[in-house]
Simulated scan of single mutants.
Amino acid sequence: MRDFDEFAAAATQPLLRLGWLLTGDADQAQDLAQNTLIRTYGAWHRVRHDDALSYARRIMVNLHTDWLRRRPWREQPRADLPDTGGGPGGRHGGHDGGHGAVEDRAALVAALQSLTRRERAAIVLRYYVDLSEQQTAQTLGVSVGTVKSVCSRALAKLRVSPALREERLFVRTAQGEPS
């Protein structure tokens, strides 16, 4: 299964970043990415290889949803966030350059965690993974109209989020400044 090995090597970092944004925790993101690759491998004979990453994203969102349903029985959330240096994959970098990037990331994760599971998944897929409305709808298994309304509600919540308002992260991001 050389083609799956190549897919897994290329997809690991994007899946880790998506998992980190969904969970807000690097260790949980690794578990989620690993389980996603395991499930994708099990279905590899059914997967369209030109669309394998989309298939894996859908699995990840479903696994995350399942995990959230079981969460109260397994783990308790922490009130403090450790300084993780930017999450997996180094996309955000470990050095904040004196501009408060670590605080911005913590505020963003806190704001994302305040959204419902569906809102968080829609926002992450639509704006972080940069999927179109159609691709997001397909990944989530909903209509395009649902994606539009869910994203609209979620963005409205993020605009008034105390965590983002304090850090002014949402304003900077919306104006196109680096976060």
Rank of each mutant, 00 (worst) to 15 (best):
M1T: 13
M1I: 09
T12G: 13
P14V: 09
P14S: 09
L15G: 13
L22F: 09
L22I: 07
T23D: 05
D25F: 10
D27C: 02
Q30P: 00
A33V: 01
N35F: 14
N35D: 14
N35H: 09
L37N: 05
L37D: 11
Y41I: 01
G42I: 02
A43W: 01
W44G: 01
R48Y: 14
H49I: 14
D50S: 15
D51G: 11
D51L: 13
D51S: 10
D51I: 03
Y55Q: 08
A56V: 08
R57S: 02
R57V: 04
V61G: 01
W67E: 08
L68H: 07
R69S: 06
R71I: 00
P72I: 06
W73P: 00
R74G: 00
E75L: 10
R78S: 11
D80L: 11
L81G: 02
P82H: 05
D83N: 05
T84D: 15
G87E: 00
P88C: 01
G90N: 08
G90M: 02
H92T: 03
G94M: 02
G97A: 13
H99K: 08
A101E: 06
A101K: 10
V102Y: 01
A106L: 02
A106W: 01
A107W: 04
A107I: 00
L108E: 02
L108V: 13
L108M: 11
A110Q: 11
A110D: 06
L112H: 09
Q113I: 05
E119L: 04
R120I: 04
A122P: 00
L125V: 12
L125F: 09
Y128T: 11
V129Q: 09
L131M: 15
S132N: 09
E133M: 15
E133T: 14
T136W: 08
Q138A: 14
G141C: 04
V142S: 11
S143R: 07
T146M: 14
V147A: 12
K148N: 12
K148E: 14
V150M: 07
C151K: 12
R153N: 04
A154C: 11
L155E: 15
L155C: 08
L155T: 11
A156H: 14
K157S: 05
R159H: 09
V160A: 03
S161E: 08
S161Q: 03
A163H: 14
A163Q: 10
A163S: 10
E167V: 08
R168N: 10
L169D: 00
L169Q: 04
F170C: 01
V171T: 11
T173E: 12
Q175V: 08
P178D: 15
